[in-house]
């Protein structure tokens, strides 16, 4: 077959206009698959006709598109919800706006929930911080209390050691006239001459005064040091060691103590 002759016979043009018989149609298709020239001529004829048809285009009624999509959905030919692949032109009719509305409502609800939960957590966090501060304060207090107890226990041990040691001699210092109720205890080691003082009932002093302990050695007063504590705590305090003591006495002196006892300020005294 002469292809050029076939092409110029007019059969392709008649085919695209729908004027050929089914047998001729089949022949055109078959030859267009075999010969690129035939295919080319067929495409050109189709495109020419297509462009002519496009010129005759008329805009269809606006709702036709929605009707088509709705019909396809109703027939189960198409999904109700347009997939991500829907374009803006593909509008209302098949529930796109509804989906958008639901999505928007969900988004707003999620944001509100998020803000609420952030606020709640911030509030809870402030609460926790407050609790942590309280617990830390309590811990500090407990440590301080513990230290106080430890100190007291240590003192008590020390006192027990002193009291329990038979080498220590307890000297009771009784109130001199005018201070009848007052009392103090001195523990004195007759070998090492160590002196401990424990006020058992001495009045509290103003801050510029201190109790000073004196030992009477060979008839003369010798300072055994001042008692440090101002409060009424009856803690045992080690004093200056003194040998050959005949008697102990306590006077009220200015802070730091005096070289000679102020005799009219004597509170308690006791012989060994």
């Amino acid at each position: 077959m002469n292809i050029q002759e076939y092409i110029s016979s007019g059969i392709i043009e008649n085919h695209v206009l729908g004027l050929t018989s089914p047998a001729e149609d089949a022949e055109v298709v078959k030859l267009s698959e075999q010969y690129p020239e035939v295919r080319q001529a067929l495409r050109e004829a189709e495109d020419a006709l297509m462009n002519y048809a496009l010129l005759h285009g008329k805009t269809p009624p606006a709702n036709t598109k929605d009707k088509i999509f709705k019909a396809l959905v109703d027939q189960g030919q198409m999904n109700e919800t347009p997939t991500v692949d829907a374009t803006p032109g593909f509008s209302a009719g098949i529930g796109e706006t509804k989906t958008h509305r639901i999505t928007r409502v969900l988004a707003i609800a999620a944001s509100l929930l998020f803000v609420a939960s952030v606020a709640f957590h911030l509030f809870k966090m402030a609460d926790f911080r407050q609790q942590i501060r309280q617990l830390e304060q309590e811990k500090t207090d407990l440590i301080a209390q513990n230290e106080t107890f430890m100190a007291q226990i240590q003192e008590a041990h020390q006192e027990l050691d002193v009291i329990g040691d038979p080498a220590f001699k307890a000297v009771v210092l009784s109130g001199v006239p005018g201070h009848d109720d007052n009392r103090a205890l001195v523990y004195w080691h007759n070998v090492s001459h160590t002196v401990y003082l424990k006020p058992t009932n001495l009045p509290e002093l103003p801050t510029d005064k201190q109790y000073q302990l004196w030992g009477i050695v060979a008839g003369k007063p010798v300072s055994a040091g001042v008692y440090e504590s101002h409060d009424s705590q009856q803690t045992l305090q080690q004093m200056i060691a003194l040998a050959d003591v005949e008697m102990f006495a306590i006077t009220v002196e200015p802070v730091g103590g005096s070289k000679q006892p102020t005799l009219d300020q004597m509170v308690v005294a006791g012989k060994i």
């Binding site: 036709t64 198409m78 374009t87 032109g89």
Partner: peptide
Amino acid sequence: KSQRAYNYLYDNYSAAVYGVICK
């Protein structure tokens, strides 16, 4: 069965199709 492609097809060819039908 891409709905997007179909949408495209409609937007671009519905006028021509409608024109032919109106003939």
